[in-house]
């Protein structure tokens, strides 16, 4: 059962994944192709140890499940074995949000163009990941579809490039929008419905160490049949909205609040409503030129 651990540099972290479930390792090596796979684990400092393993031999035959261990401890309930790969991605989100307080972390998608960063911050279901995936295939460089990682000293955004997690209708929509994009397998009946992961563009992976300063902070909202509309909102309101979406603003206290204020101070802040993806992409192209 012993299989070789995968030690993966996902800037700004090094993650070690131990799993004997072959499909997980296969999906990781396909979606993370172009990343640095470290052969000799002892040469690096590993930030997070994640293990995805079958629950027990007894349950191996009847609805087999997998458990996720964060360095030996299991903070979650087990999931069906078919969801082993998304389990890895979710646990990586969890472990970063729980242990990392040397950066400010905001629940948001981040993209970059011409050295300027766009932060898309919204509640789940607001179409943030879909918009993010579409922009990534329209000349923007992906930083993250899940987490804005902010350097506390310089207030720069740091790339944390990983496959984009697409849900339900967004999967087919993106297949049409970007026919050449690489998508991983679809995982059905997860807590978020059907989930499939889109490989980051080559440019995003290659420039994974190049940071950017925030220029736009946008709260997108997908609304069926809505016209594409962008309207400016006050900075004060933006700070409050961002604070609510920050993973560790409460831990960072006054320091984190100052960072958020400075971030907002230097950015244009908008609310954005859309239903047509192409129109949305065009609007952001105009915004950045």
């Amino acid at each position: 059962m012993k299989s070789k651990p995968i030690v993966l540099r996902i800037e700004p972290f090094v993650v070690r994944l131990d799993t004997c479930i072959a499909p997980v390792a296969e999906v990781v090596s396909s979606l993370y192709s172009g990343y640095e796979f470290i052969e000799e684990a002892s040469t690096v400092f590993v930030d997070f140890y994640i293990k995805i393993a079958p629950v027990s031999y007894l349950r191996g035959y009847y609805r087999p499940q997998v458990q996720c261990f964060i360095d030996g401890k299991a903070p979650f309930k087990p999931l069906p074995i078919s969801q082993a790969y998304p389990f890895f991605e979710w646990s990586l989100n969890w472990v970063v949000a729980s242990y990392v307080h040397h950066y400010l972390l905001v629940h948001a998608a981040v993209l970059e163009k011409n050295g300027q960063a766009l932060i898309l911050c919204g509640v789940p279901g607001a179409g943030k990941s879909t918009l993010c995936a579409a922009l990534m295939h329209s000349g923007w460089r992906l930083f993250s579809d899940e987490m804005a990682v902010i350097d506390l000293h310089t207030n720069e955004l740091m790339p944390f490039v990983r496959p984009i997690s697409l849900k339900n209708q967004a999967i087919d929509l993106m297949r049409q929008f970007a026919p050449n994009a690489v998508l991983g397998p679809s995982f059905f009946d997860t807590s978020k419905g059907t989930v499939a992961h889109m490989q980051p563009t080559q440019d995003s992976v290659l420039r994974k160490s190049i940071r950017a300063s925030a220029k736009w902070i946008v709260f997108p909202k997908y609304q069926k049949d809505a016209d594409t509309s962008l309207h400016a909102i006050p900075k004060s309101q933006t700070v409050i909205k961002l604070t609510k979406n920050a993973f560790n603003a409460n831990v960072l206290g006054g320091k984190g609040f100052k960072n958020l204020c400075a971030l907002v101070e230097g950015s244009d802040c908008y609310e954005f409503e859309y239903s047509e993806l192409q129109e949305a992409v065009n609007l952001f192209a105009d915004l950045s030129s």
């Binding site: 242990y99 990392v100 307080h101 040397h102």
Partner: peptide
């Protein structure tokens, strides 16, 4: 050091 500092901030 980053992990130590995160723990200290927490």
């Amino acid at each position: 050091l980053k992990h130590f500092e995160s723990a200290k901030v927490y």
